[in-house]
Amino acid sequence: MVAQLTQCIRLNLDCADICTAAGHIASRRTGSNEPIIQSVLRACEEACRLCAEECDRHASMHEHCRICAESCRRCEQACQAALQTFH
């Protein structure tokens, strides 16, 4: 069973790291670094999408995967909304 969750766990950890970095960088929003903020938000959006998709594969067997998938989708949507503020 653990072997089946290896990719899921890796995506969870990668996603958490990217989300943390995106939060730190986006909270320092200034006009001079908007391209960097946009890039990190796009990376966070993608990481959350991939993580949610992977967790969905295990959600019927593991409650924590269902919760993780829901959280990742909310974060993905938040990144999309934040990106819209740049247009």
Rank of each mutant, 00 (worst) to 15 (best):
E63C: 03
Q77K: 09
Q38P: 01
C79P: 11
A69V: 03
I37V: 12
A52R: 05
R28N: 14
A52E: 05
C68E: 02
A47F: 05
Q80T: 15
A16I: 03
C79S: 14
M61I: 00
V40H: 00
M61Y: 06
L50N: 13
L11C: 02
H24E: 11
A59M: 07
E53W: 04
E34H: 06
T30Q: 07
C51G: 01
Q80Y: 06
E70A: 05
D17H: 12
V40M: 02
S27F: 07
D17L: 14
I67C: 00
I9C: 03
F86H: 14
A16D: 03
A47R: 08
T30N: 10
C44V: 04
R10T: 15
A78P: 04
A81I: 03
Q4C: 09
I37T: 06
Q38C: 10
R28M: 12
A26C: 14
D17T: 14
R49G: 01
R29I: 09
R29D: 12
C75L: 08
H58P: 08
Q38N: 04
A59H: 07
H62S: 06
C8Y: 00
L5H: 10
N12V: 13
R74Y: 00
I18N: 07
R74M: 05
A21N: 03
C19R: 14
Q77T: 05
R57F: 04
A26D: 08
